[in-house]
Amino acid sequence: MNDIELNIEGNNETAERKRNEEVKDEWINYDVDGDPKISVSNLNVWYGEERAIKDISIDIPKKSVTAIIGPSGCGKSTFLRCINRMNDRIRNAKIDGSIRFDGTEIYQNNLNLVELRRKVGMVFQNPNPFPKSIRDNVLYAPRKHGYIEKNFLEKILGRTKQKEKNILEKSLKQAALWDEVKNRLDDNALGLSGGQQQRLCIARCLAVDPEVILMDEPASSLDPIATSKIEDLIVSLSNNYTVIVVTHNMQQAARISDQTAVFLTGGELVEYDETTKIFENPESKRVEDYITGRFG
């Protein structure tokens, strides 16, 4: 936080000069309370010859919203995809460095990727519900993951239905969609509005009880009302989940996040600090130029 200086005595010009020197080019200074949920060290990503992320180290605290901002092509989405190893699917992507999830290295050979992606859910820019009913969208993953018993005895005792109902209601309520769809759960999800579809995707992600939710510009294709609902939802989700949001919307990052990481061209992480600090008084001149619209 800013210093409070009371009536500085002595050589004021020296003090002033010292303050000038404090303006840094890079500033990664966020003290995470307790163990971080995700700890990234010296992460580098290449797509073929092109380096998308350059030597990034960052700790993401538990149960909070971390915003990632920066100009297009600076590696924000690449960074996000590294956290649940979605970049593995890109043929010429090469990843170097370490990402620890609750202290466990995720870039190790024997890691269960299905389990990792259950724990680290993702919501994309454009809502992408399956062309199925609202109910089937939410229950698709829990059924696949075996959360809902399929054996005959459970079925005849009616327990399967009850479990499904519980998961469906809980997920849709958490995604603030329950009241709007509770009477049409078997309607096709594609009939929902854009904002509702996006919240359905969040409900779908919540249905498998993740620990981290990655969001890549989750509200950029939505109108202001739907955007506001998604933002409220993100803030309330952070009470129980660790949320990481990539956004181009500066004000959105300022409104919803606890800490903000600023990536700049070349895949560099230039500043990482409390959101209020970043938007009131960033340390880096380059970050200040970017967020005030005087850069690039």
Binding site: N2, D3, I4, E5, L6, N7, I8, R19, E280, N281
Partner: peptide, 9 residues
């Protein structure tokens, strides 16, 4: 100018 909270008094 500097973003620092100071108090001249």
């Amino acid at each position: 100018k500097k973003g620092k909270r100071v108090r001249i008094k």
